[in-house]
Simulated assay, not measured.
Amino acid sequence: MDYDRQTSNTTYRIIYVIAAIMVIVGAFFRLQHYPNGPSISMIGYILGMVTIIFDRIRLKRKNENLEEQLKQKE
């Protein structure tokens, strides 16, 4: 169980870092007027938003499970 949690945390971090790098590269492309700069930025933004949404859902489920365990102990 601990291994799965660590793996999912690492996966979310890696995906979020990739999204951030894409946004920075897209911004650089925009500044230099290279082609596809806005597209790269938009893909980075969307990837970041999707990652955050799935991470929030995962954390909400984890919180609900912990609250349920706490109620069972009482």
Rank of each mutant, 00 (worst) to 15 (best):
I21S: 10
R30L: 13
V25C: 07
I53H: 03
M1L: 11
E68H: 09
Q72F: 04
R56H: 08
A27V: 14
L47V: 13
D2G: 08
M49R: 02
I53N: 00
D4V: 05
I14G: 02
I43P: 00
N36T: 09
P35N: 07
I14V: 14
G48Y: 04
I14E: 03
K73L: 15
I18C: 12
F54E: 04
E74C: 01
I53P: 00
I46P: 01
A27M: 11
Y12K: 03
T7N: 08
N9Y: 06
E74G: 07
K60Q: 12
T7L: 15
T51F: 02
I53Q: 01
E64N: 14
F28C: 06
R56V: 15
L59Y: 05
N36V: 06
L70T: 08
V25S: 03
V23G: 05
N36Q: 06
E64I: 13
M22N: 06
I46H: 01
F54R: 05
S39R: 04
I15R: 01
Q6H: 05
R13A: 13
G37H: 03
N63C: 08
I46C: 04
E64F: 10
A27C: 09
T7M: 13
R58T: 02
E68A: 11
I15S: 02
L70Y: 10
V50W: 10
T10Y: 05
R30T: 12
L47P: 01
K71S: 08
T11K: 11
R58F: 03
F54D: 04
Q6K: 13
I46L: 15
K62R: 12
T10A: 15
Q72E: 12
N63W: 13
K60Y: 14
I57R: 13
N65P: 00
E68C: 02
I46N: 02
R58Y: 07
I14L: 13
D2P: 00
Q69G: 06
M49C: 10
N9V: 03
N63Q: 15
H33I: 04
G37I: 02
K62M: 09
P38D: 06
A19C: 02
Q6G: 06
R61M: 08
I14Q: 04
A20M: 07
I46E: 03
A19F: 05
I46F: 12
I43W: 06
K71R: 14
Q32F: 11
T10K: 14
G44I: 07
L66E: 15
I57F: 09
R5E: 11
T51A: 15
T10Q: 12
R58K: 05
D2E: 14
L66A: 10
D55I: 01
D4E: 08
Q72H: 06
P38F: 14
E67H: 07
I40Y: 04
S39A: 13
Y45I: 14
D55T: 08
Q32M: 12
Q69F: 04
R56T: 14
S8K: 10
Q69S: 12
K62S: 12
P35G: 03
I24Y: 00
K60D: 09
N63A: 15
G37M: 03
I53T: 10
L70R: 07
L66F: 10
L31A: 11
S39G: 11
I24C: 08
